[in-house]
Design a protein around this nucleic acid. Structure first.
Length: 552
RNA sequence: GGCCCGUUGGUCAAGCGGUUAAGACUCCGCCCUUUCACGGCGGCAACACGAGUUCGAGUCUCGUACGGGUCACCA
């Protein structure tokens, strides 16, 4: 029995063998992958985490296919923890269509045989393995204070040496056992450090599933395993958890590459087979200050928080679809060939992931989102818009719920058919799009096109008003416009007008533009006949009258 | 600074030793069209640089430059 290990971990009764038995290897079909997302609840869900989770989900395959995608909480940093952060992340993930098979599968729900899935509740497990390492002489207590470490760093920098707790700078590394024990018994605070056997001039190599072979110096830093409060660092927790939870593929951002030698060393020392590492490039953002690219930052970039997209009213589907175009280089081509297919059908491969960081492109998001919304039914759009306005635009919400049929009617215009309109990219665009359907928020622009004189416009409205027939269908309606055009000096056929513009003031299209302007306050709208039908004759007549007066 | 990773049009990107160097987004033009939007057609626009290997290099090697990441009792 190692007296030091005994003293440090007197509360540990279980052995590594116990845990091996408790968490046996998973019975998986050949080739099935076990992936995980392990966020720390230090804020709300942001684009980077969603991106990672999307990749994990994709790599594990659709639910029920043998692969497992689980959610583990890395709540080891009490200082930065945000209350409710975990549930928010979970709920948001689900909202973006990332389903979870195991661990925390929904807010307040934890399931699976490899738990607990919150690191704050796994202290005993980490301590058990830390104890083993101390017993084997592979770990030791370190009493260095913050000041001492800062001092060491300063002197290292002065000597142009690599900073860190290694080699001769690892002050507590060779403390006599008796001294360590005495100091612990005296109540002195300490951390547990790895006695890193690595050497800087030996190199290790690993096959990254995304980036390919990577070669780096071995780790020789005596990294902290357990902080002074007994909570493990990420490195140690990663090794213990991903082994015990039988993760096959650790998919994470490439900012982790630098510490992979530490992780590989940990796995080796613990006697475990390491998982396959898959380091993906992170999403970048254009820095407004410098014009350059940089990693997305939760603090600097409000649009990194999913809350931003929610407030703007981007459908979750749009964001997911956009993310896919960054996740996998061949997604767009697949999507073009399989327009309606669920994303889970996409044949995903880690190898197809980009090795360099993509710049977040809001313009592309807009384009993707317009496509997504154009494929929705009028009912779906009305429903989504109603939900969104309830939270973010109460005034518009009240107008929209007044008559659900009317609201659906608005979104039904020009929606059916093979060439749906793409006017809306996000729900916050809707207010402007629908404003002329509601007198309460109607803001006519009323600026006539330059080629139409006010007298002619007035004459057009004068002539049209008695002809207005709410029963007319689209074709009959435009026939009416054409029929009344010549008397006003406008050519009934656009083509004929273009062939001989000199003989006319304009064409039937100009006539309809004047009416459109009178009825909607705009020069550009979807099909005017449908709009007038929806508005109803009372409103149409009122607006025609109002327009005639404003022209005079 | 050390150690890593990266670099094909403005952006996302195909490409795997021989291609007129795909495609998507943006922008521009034309067509369709009662406006707009949609759609169709077309256009602008790229292999960071320098050596080397090779009959031949965006593709392989080495340098250089530039960009990013990382060097915590944060993840």
């Amino acid at each position: 029995m190692n007296p030091l290990a005994q003293l440090m971990f007197s509360h540990i009764a279980k052995t590594p063998e116990d845990y091996e038995a408790l968490y046996p290897p998973r019975d998986l079909p050949p080739g099935a992958k076990v992936t995980r997302i392990a966020p720390s609840p230090t804020g709300y869900l942001h684009l980077g985490v969603l991106f990672g989770a999307t990749v994990d989900r994709l790599a594990a395959g659709p639910p029920g296919n043998g692969g497992v995608f689980y959610f583990r909480l890395e709540d080891t940093d009490k200082k930065r923890e945000v209350a409710g952060g975990a549930d928010d992340i979970l709920a948001s993930l689900l909202a973006y269509g990332v389903t979870i098979d195991e661990g925390f599968t929904a807010p307040g729900t934890e399931q699976g045989d490899y738990g607990p899935y919150a690191q704050s509740r796994r202290a005993e497990i980490y301590h058990c393995y830390a104890k083993q390492l101390v017993e084997q002489g592979l770990a030791y207590p370190c009493f260095c204070s913050e000041e001492e470490r800062a001092q060491a760093r300063t002197s290292q920098e002065a000597q142009k040496l690599r900073t860190g707790y290694y080699g001769a700078f690892a002050l507590c590394r060779n403390l006599p056992v008796e001294e360590s024990m005495a100091r612990i018994q005296a109540g002195e605070p300490y951390v547990v450090r790895l006695r890193a056997p690595g050497s800087e001039d030996r190199r290790i190599r690993f096959d990254d599933q995304i980036k390919g072979t990577i070669e780096m110096p071995e780790n020789d830093e005596d990294l902290v395993l357990l902080k002074s409060d007994g909570i493990p660092t990420y490195h140690f927790a990663h090794a213990v958890d991903d082994h015990l939870m039988r993760t096959t593929h650790v998919i994470r951002g490439d900012e982790w590459i630098a510490s992979t030698p530490k992780h590989l060393q940990l796995f080796a020392l613990l006697g475990w087979k390491p998982p396959k590492y898959c380091h993906h490039a992170t999403i970048m953002i254009e820095d407004a200050q410098t014009g350059g690219k940089r990693k997305l930052s939760k603090r600097k970039d409000p649009e990194a928080a999913m809350q931003y997209f929610t407030e703007q009213g981007y459908p979750a589907e749009s964001v997911s679809e956009y993310l896919m175009t960054i996740v996998s280089s061949d997604f767009e081509q697949w999507r073009a060939r399989n327009p309606g297919a669920p994303r889970s059908d996409f044949p995903f491969s880690l190898k197809k992931m980009s090795v360099s960081g993509a710049l977040f492109d809001p313009v592309k998001l807009t384009d993707v989102s317009k496509g997504v919304i154009s494929r929705m039914t009028a009912e779906q759009v009305a429903g989504a818009v109603t939900d969104w306005t309830q939270k973010f635009d109460p005034e518009l919400y009240d107008l929209l719920i007044y008559s659900p049929d009317y609201t659906i009617g608005i979104f039904a215009i020009d929606r059916e058919g093979s060439k749906p309109r793409k006017d809306i990219a996000k729900w916050s665009d809707v207010r402007d799009y629908v404003s002329y359907f509601f007198d309460e928020i109607y803001q006519p622009e009323m600026a006539l096109p330059e080629n139409i004189a006010p007298v002619d416009a007035a004459a057009i409205l004068e002539a049209y008003t008695p002809l207005y027939d709410p029963e007319q269908d689209k074709q009959a309606w435009f026939e009416t416009i054409k029929a009344m055009s010549p008397a006003l000096g406008f050519c009934p056929e656009v083509k004929a007008y273009k062939a001989d513009p000199a003989g006319w003031k304009g064409h039937a299209g100009d006539v309809s533009t004047v009416i459109r302007l009178a009825v909607t306050g705009r020069r550009n709208t979807p099909d005017l006949c449908s709009i007038m039908k929806l508005l109803g004759s009372e409103k149409v007549l009122a607006r025609l009258k109002q327009a005639k007066e404003s022209i005079k």
